[in-house]
Design a protein around this nucleic acid. Structure first.
Lengths: 157, 157
DNA sequence: TATTGTTATACTCTATAACTATA
DNA sequence: TATAGTTATAGAGTATAACAATA
């Protein structure tokens, strides 16, 4: 008889929170890798995607929609401007409207392709209908205010 | 006519990865709050849960099962031992078998209750069957090796 | 030669506080 | 008085490298 290592009992078998966390870590790791060649981090790409769909949003509005604090939006946005991907325009004396430059549009399209490919890599095995249901359930989870830090202004209000 | 702020278009509507991330952040925030009174962080609780179900696992085995690096398991375990929740026993000259102390059992039970309550708070609106399917899909996502760092030894092999 | 446990350390993310200038 | 943007900084969490002791 071969001494096989005792199988580990999994106490997390029925915990959605645990699997959510592990999956999120794996997904973040893969999307980071996928965006690497474009010199974008996931947060950068999310900002590009959002202002591509909503030209003219201010920095604060973008931050609120994405759950990124103003204090962290400042250097993030500054870096995108410095790279020539995003254009800032004072609209109000204190607010900055954001839009993509031509280069930004191009990089944004590439990032979008990479993201779609990444989604297929990670979730391709999940039937589309199940994926859609999962998305709606998860949206309810994070929009349902388990959050404290949200100042009440998010996507899809 | 009242000037209503233009509704924001959501480019992440069909992205499972994005919703996974947002939900995970909300869930981590809430479980951190729920475990706070027990002076446990989520990683601490996950270690307690695992060795409660598998007394005698070594530090490295626990780390591999939970996706925590050996280098980070060392101070984490040391803190649990210092608090009197976990007992270390040299089993091999280099390996340490871990088990819960009586106090550890008690705190672990309380943490388990808190976690179940947290799961109901966060996911109570999702029907059990859908929750179960979601868990299985997510398990496949993170066990499916989108991961690089995993040294191939995880729960439920 | 590979593994365990450990220390030290670096890096990224996220959070808080404080400030200014506008509204 | 509240908001936008900014800076500085602190704190988690996670990562790598190196080492001693053991298998």
């Amino acid at each position: 008889m071969l001494k096989t290592p005792a199988p580990i009992i999994d106490p997390f078998e029925k915990m959605l929170g645990y699997h959510l966390r592990r999956a999120s870590v794996a997904v973040m790791s893969d999307i980071t890798r996928a965006l690497g060649p474009l010199r974008l981090k996931p947060a950068d790409a999310s900002v590009l995607f959002l202002i591509a769909s909503n030209a003219g949003l201010t920095q604060s509005e973008v931050g609120r929609a994405l759950g990124i604090l103003r204090a962290n939006m400042a250097p993030l946005t500054a870096a995108l401007v410095r790279k020539g991907l995003v254009i800032r325009k004072r609209v109000d004396g204190r607010s900055q409207a954001l839009r993509l430059s031509a280069a930004g549009e191009s990089v944004c399209r590439a990032a979008w392709e990479a993201t779609l490919a990444h989604e297929e890599t990670m979730f391709g095995a999940i039937p589309k209908a199940a994926r859609r249901r999962c998305i709606e359930d998860l949206r309810a989870v994070w929009q349902g205010r388990g959050d404290a830090e949200s100042e009440s202004d998010q996507l899809d209000p």
